[in-house]
Structures are given as structure tokens and as C-alpha cells.
């Protein structure tokens, strides 16, 4: 473990908490893409199956359970409890155009052709594009993202950017190099760059975040 990965994981946890609190406190999931949240739940389900087969550390197991729990609760709130506030008309990204190619790529490009390893690879690839429906939704719904949603996106984007620092650190310190995770992590972070620019230039100056359509 290193400081980059620890801060990254805490930023990831903060993002999940920010989103959950936003939906729970406002009793509304307006502006939140249910499709992205379903994809995040898929990411954690397919990545954390080793929860039962491999023990890495208490921290690792606890965080996996927390991420799984929070993502399931978030999906539950969006599609069941606060279903009436779900903005389905604007959450129209065709996720099958993401899931199918990602699944195909996971079968073709992976470290080892085994069940758990292909699911892990699928989850890594899926996570790098899972935020697209959310960014697409913000760019469609009049470009206005609630400030809290932009904080959620910022925390979520920063987590993977910190993981890149973690991979650089681990490469020089431990000779650790996971090509698949690094490439997908860079793609994921690049997808946020446009948002990061808008977040810093707008939200930090107290303005509302708008993503040009």
C-alpha cells in the first residue's frame, strides 16, 4: 500500500458517500444516471468475486464489501425507492454499445484465460467507460449539473488519477506493472479531463457546472 493508492481509495469511497447522501438527503436522484450506477455495480460484482477465494488484507476485504454495498444501495434508491425522481428521459446512453465491446475485449485481451481473470479484466475495462452515461446525461439535461454531482464526479475522477500515480510508484519501488489496469486507468482518467477542466474553471469559482452539449 502507498499514499497514492490510499488517498485514491478514500477519494473513491468519498465519491460513493457523496452520491448516496445527495440522493438520500434530497430524496431525489435527479441528474444521476442510473445506467452508470448499474455499470459501477457490475464493475464491483465482477471484480470482487475474489473476496471469497483470496484474502489480501482486512482493509482490502472491508473496502470491497463497502463498495459492493454502497453501489447496490445506490442502484436500489434510483430504481426503486426514488424511482419517481429518476430522469429516464435524459438517461438514454446505449450501454449495450459499451458492455458488449468491453466483454469482447476482455475475452481477447487478458492476463490469463480463466473465469475469474476474464471477469476481472471485464470489470477493469467496464470501469473505464462506466461514467460515460453520466457525463452524457449532464451534457443533455440543459448542461446544468448540481454542484454536489460535480463534487461526486471530481472525487470519482481523482481516484483513478491517483491510481496512475500509485502504478508509477509501484513500478519504481516494486517493479509492479499491470498493463491492462494502467491502460484502462489512463483511458478512464482522460475521459474525466474535460470535466476536470470545467470543474476547476467553473465550480471552484462558485459558478454552476455546465458541460457543453
Amino acid at each position: 500500500m502507498n499514499i497514492f493508492r490510499l488517498v485514491g481509495d478514500l477519494s473513491h469511497l468519498a465519491a460513493l458517500i457523496i452520491l448516496l447522501l445527495k440522493i438520500w438527503k434530497s430524496r431525489s436522484c435527479a441528474g444521476v444516471s442510473g445506467k452508470s450506477q448499474i455499470m459501477f455495480a457490475m464493475v464491483y460484482m465482477t471484480r470482487y468475486l475474489d473476496l471469497f477465494t483470496t484474502f489480501v488484507s482486512v482493509y482490502n476485504s472491508v473496502m470491497k464489501v463497502v463498495f459492493l454495498l454502497f453501489s447496490f444501495v445506490t442502484v436500489y434508491l434510483i430504481y426503486f425507492k426514488f424511482k419517481a425522481t429518476y430522469d429516464g428521459n435524459h438517461d438514454t446512453f446505449r450501454v449495450e454499445f459499451l458492455v458488449v465491446p468491453v466483454a469482447g475485449l476482455a475475452v481477447l485481451v487478458n492476463h490469463e484465460f480463466s473465469f475469474l481473470e476474464i471477469l476481472w479484466t471485464f470489470s477493469i475495462y467496464l470501469e473505464s467507460v462506466a461514467i460515460l452515461p453520466q457525463l452524457f446525461m449532464i451534457s443533455k439535461t440543459g448542461c446544468e449539473a448540481e454542484t454536489i454531482t460535480s463534487h461526486y464526479l471530481f472525487a470519482l475522477g481523482i481516484y483513478r488519477a491517483l491510481y496512475i500515480a500509485n502504478w508509477i510508484f509501484r513500478y519504481y519501488m516494486e517493479g509492479f506493472f499491470d498493463f491492462i489496469a494502467i491502460v484502462a486507468g489512463c483511458v478512464q482518467t482522460i475521459l474525466y479531463c474535460d470535466f476536470f477542466y470545467l470543474y476547476v474553471t467553473k465550480v471552484w469559482k462558485g459558478k454552476r457546472l455546465t458541460i457543453p452539449a
Binding site: 481509495d9 492476463h111 490469463e112 500509485n166
Partner: peptide, 10 residues
């Protein structure tokens, strides 16, 4: 060990 790769990151 999960396959060849032990994934120790979240």
C-alpha cells in the same frame, strides 16, 4: 492466488 495474477488493488 487468483490465477497467475494476484490482484491486490481495489
Amino acid at each position: 492466488r487468483v490465477g497467475i495474477y494476484m490482484h491486490d488493488e481495489l
